[in-house]
Design a protein around this nucleic acid. Structure first.
Length: 501
RNA sequence: GUCCCCUUCGUCUAGUGGUUAGGACACCGGGUUUUCAUCCCGGCAACGGGGGUUCAAUUCCCCCAGGGGAUGCCA
């Protein structure tokens, strides 16, 4: 049978690294098998649901470049793919389980003790008072039915066998077995408001949608036996289960906001490329081909092997992701980088949005200046700031090359001004040649000649290549900035003598 | 408390009953370079501990420790 896997997010938060990785592994598995990847919205939590999260879900995956073969938007043979549109199905199945004696009505009031944060609860719990006490399990079914018909508030709970054990074979972890007494006693399947819980909806839908493989994070493993019991109760064949290792933060705990960015949106805004994010996340807890680090999505689809997923949890390394991003930025063409960087420059009001013809040309010339320097796209405005704004004049010290003094810097600027006066700024090669010749004549390093100029023009000692930058600047501005710097140095000349070294 | 899972450089990982335990990021050093960055070269650095099994264990088994997760009318 063709593999059918699903990504089943619940729209109760922004898409984050962990969920995207689960989606990615499912996606890669489906593609590697020539199977189907299905999106199913598990929107059974009314309290936390938000339309905005649904939108975020679509936006995120569109940006990442995933597509699903079946889903709420694309439709498919098992529609609807939104659980809130399938409520009658769940109720029916829950009732069916009651009918079969595998589940029962429970009239206990919603016990919220686990929701408080009162410390004394801990003592109650450590004393052994765990889980539901199965009070209603012994109510006579006929009596229970009567109470339900009378309109008494109730939930439906699954009967976990009181003895014996439940086991399954995890693709990654192998055989896992629980004593039934260790399973969460009689979990709720249908809430008192008539909504299904995750467990019910998930199992019913996976069956009805012919899901063959369930890949989900390892934090779900403890509900696996409960699901197995449900499949057995229905007389259904359970899908193959594969529990993915978790993604942890630097401190070894579940990745969360306090570790830094976790929402895909944050990475997107900061200027990470989808290809980099996918590449990095795909390698978190999984390996593909020895001796290689860079994989495109299509390559990953081809190379993915479920067996190559690791068992151990992986720590998310922001620095390594940054490296991947740099790699992918470097692979961009001028045109690609220009268009990717445009929104950031537009936001800084350096470029209009949409850009004019002239700005487009400029953008194209900007790309090679920053490509090797960017770690993420949002760094671009800062790097190019000097081209669009008058830089602040830094302290005189900044102008002075190592082992030189203010007088020297002043002289260098004077020289530069003169050279530039005769040069064609747009011919950066010729410009450079002229400066080289001059440096040689003066018996100093090219860097010594350029550093004061760099600081004068850009306001910092670190900038994109000078000659290429000047080619994009107006002559008047260049001369004005040099003049200002010289003035600045002149006043502070006396300070320069024993500078740095 | 109880249950479940996990354990190779700081991090992500490769790998095998006999290997100089490989790669990548980070870090350190060097080179290229007009600064920075890129790029290139080199270096540092790991099989958690204890028992077995075996001629031989990082690799197989057991125990321990450590880490993580779960224990909801949230998913």
């Amino acid at each position: 049978m063709k593999a059918r896997v699903r990504y089943a997010p619940s729209p109760t938060g922004l898409q984050h690294i962990g969920s995207v990785r689960t989606a990615l592994f499912n996606y890669l598995f489906a593609r590697s098998q020539g199977g189907s990847f299905i999106l199913r919205l598990e929107d059974t939590d009314r309290a936390r649901y938000s339309e905005a999260y649904v939108k975020n879900l679509y936006d995120t995956f569109k940006w990442l470049g995933f597509y699903w073969d079946e889903g709420p938007d694309t439709g498919g043979p098992k529609a609807p793919y939104i659980q809130s549109e399938r409520f009658d199905i769940y109720r029916k199945h829950a009732e069916q389980l009651v009918q079969m004696g595998k589940a029962y009505y429970c009239f206990c009031s919603d016990d919220k003790k686990f929701k408080d944060n009162e410390p004394e609860n801990e003592e109650i719990e450590t004393a052994g008072g765990y889980g539901y006490t199965r009070t209603c399990r012994s109510i006579d079914p006929i009596e229970a039915r009567k109470r339900v018909q009378l309109g008494q508030a109730h939930v439906i709970r699954l009967k976990i066998p009181l003895e014996g054990s439940t086991s399954f074979d995890d693709v990654l972890l192998g055989r896992i077995e629980w004593k039934n007494t260790d399973i969460n006693p009689d979990p709720v399947l249908l809430k008192s408001d008539g909504y299904p819980t995750y467990h019910l909806a998930n199992v019913v839908d996976d069956h009805l949608m012919d899901i063959t493989h369930v890949m989900r994070a390892q934090e779900w493993i403890s509900s696996a036996p409960l699901h197995i019991i449900m499949y057995e109760a229905f007389g259904w064949k359970a899908p193959v289960l594969c529990h993915l290792p978790m993604v942890l933060g630097e401190d070894g705990h579940k990745l969360s906001k306090r570790h830094g960015a976790t929402a895909v949106d944050e990475f997107r805004k900061k200027g990470y490329l989808p290809a980099a994010l996918i590449n990095y996340v795909a390698m978190l807890g999984c390996s593909y081909e020895e001796g290689r680090d860079l994989f495109s999505l299509p390559e990953l689809e081809k190379l993915f092997l479920m067996e190559k997923i690791n068992k151990a949890p992986a720590i998310f390394d922001y620095v390594k992701l940054e490296w991947f991003n740099g790699q992918y930025i470097r692979m961009l063409t001028d045109a690609e980088l220009a268009s990717l960087v445009l929104p950031y420059l537009a936001e800084a009001s350096y470029i209009s949005q949409p850009p004019t013809q002239k700005e487009n040309e400029l953008l194209l010339k900007l790309a090679p200046l920053i490509r090797d320097r960017l770690r993420f796209l949002s760094e671009a405005p800062k790097m190019l700031k000097f081209l669009f704004e008058e830089p602040e004049l830094p302290e005189a010290v900044e102008f002075i090359p190592k082992k030189k003094d203010a007088l020297f810097a002043y002289g260098m600027l004077e020289q530069a001004l003169q050279l530039l006066g005769q040069a064609d700024l747009h011919d950066h090669d010729a410009c450079e040649a002229a400066f080289r010749a001059e440096a040689e004549k003066l018996g100093c390093k090219l860097g010594d000649l350029l550093m004061p100029l760099r600081v004068a023009l850009t306001g910092t000692k670190v900038s994109p290549p000078l000659f290429h930058s000047m080619a994009l600047m107006d002559r008047q501005i260049i001369e004005k900035r040099i003049g200002a710097a010289m003035e600045h140095l002149k006043n502070l000349e006396h300070v320069g003598r024993a500078k740095d070294e």
